[in-house]
Write a protein that binds this DNA or RNA. Sequence first.
DNA 1: CGCAACGACTTGTAGAGACAAGTTGGTATC
DNA 2: GATACCAACTTGTCTCTACAAGTCGTTGCG
Lengths: 245, 245
Amino acid sequence: MVGTPLHRTLADELRARIRGGALGVGELLPSEAELCREFAASRGPVRQALAALRDEGLIGGGQGRRAVVLDAVPAQPFESFLSFTRRAELTGHVPGQRLHEIALRHPSPAVAAALQLEPEDYAVQLVRLRLLDDRPAMLERMTYVEKVGRPLLEADLNAGSIYALLTAHGVDLHSARHTFDAVAADELDARLLEVAVGHPLLRERRLTRTSAGEALEWSEDRYRPDVATVTITNLRSGRGGFARE
Amino acid sequence: MVGTPLHRTLADELRARIRGGALGVGELLPSEAELCREFAASRGPVRQALAALRDEGLIGGGQGRRAVVLDAVPAQPFESFLSFTRRAELTGHVPGQRLHEIALRHPSPAVAAALQLEPEDYAVQLVRLRLLDDRPAMLERMTYVEKVGRPLLEADLNAGSIYALLTAHGVDLHSARHTFDAVAADELDARLLEVAVGHPLLRERRLTRTSAGEALEWSEDRYRPDVATVTITNLRSGRGGFARE
DNA sequence: CGCAACGACTTGTAGAGACAAGTTGGTATC
DNA sequence: GATACCAACTTGTCTCTACAAGTCGTTGCG
């Protein structure tokens, strides 16, 4: 693999050992010096890789103490935050989707402003109905900046998770800002979600950014409250979890 | 300050500049080389400090590009998660409240189950209207286990934050689970929030626990979506922030 | 036997240097 | 004027060195 930074391949290798069971929970990792020898690297990249695993909650440790494997299956708060598919699977439901439309067009001024786009820029917009156990659960209206959205035009959007597709394309999803409120169902909502016009729906508006702070995606999701809700758990000190069900 | 690592004081200093307004949102940070000169440090600690701010979502940037301030108000995860009062103050609004009723009674079976109470146990229940800038914003129906709720019976609930009152009494609030959906306004909602019956409202149901896992509080809050919404920020690796406005 | 001191090992912190890779703005050319 | 190119600047990555600070097992003394 040419082009991938050393610290990254190192982190991937260690992650694989932990997930694969070569390093069990509670076991000690090799010391930094040993890792340096093994991978013929200096301490910099080794420490960078270990810091990454520490951030993910995979390993712990402290000054003077070797790093220890904490958990083989780390919480993936971010992934489950963004992926309806992943969350449905984790809660034992069968996710599904029906693409309503996909288009390449100039977004409306409001959406363009959220994504920091110029009036002449294009964006990929799609409307998709999400299902839980074959029942209409959520209607998502998503807008991607052109560069990110291009691959979606050729993908089979009835087949899988957009989140998985984007990360597979190397898209750098880093942070997301979610705003929740309630709205009355409009014409389209009512038809696709199979409720009456005016029925209360949970609305989630989301802006997703890269680590550089560039906006990538603007999404407006509307949930049928009797089929799907959004759940968050937060601790006084620690990472927050997130779930949809 | 003896004993604190250089990269930490550096991060603190930069954080202070951003929060204090010396570095506004959208502004570019000094380059790494400039920071090295200014603090007479090498690039190591400087980069460590910048990485910390990046993790917090305060700054962005990329290879070849200077770091840029993304957000001046970093997440205050737990406190702002629970306190309407605190959040309103942070966003520059004036919070208010009008107590509708407070009672010591046997809770309904559903609420008793959520709080793991026996049928003969008492609980303190209150209904309170929350205001933002004197406009009705949210109606909260809260239930506390008797031991925790007792002090509330004697407190002036029109004056301040219950969260602040409880922590002042040494109550060990540790984790909270929030579930969001949408409901139609009922009779009481409509009268107090000044909307029509059937109007869509954002509903947040919350179960708060001690660090030992005992349930303390069950709350059902209903937001007027045109006055108040709920916002969460989550990062790929790091704690999620939370805000109401 | 209990305990303190020591030493080997480990991670945390910091400095300096070097090159790669990306961005930006100015300049020369067509 | 539009475009291609280049040079300066900036961040990303990596190496090497050095010392501080913490952990832990061992050793020797009381």
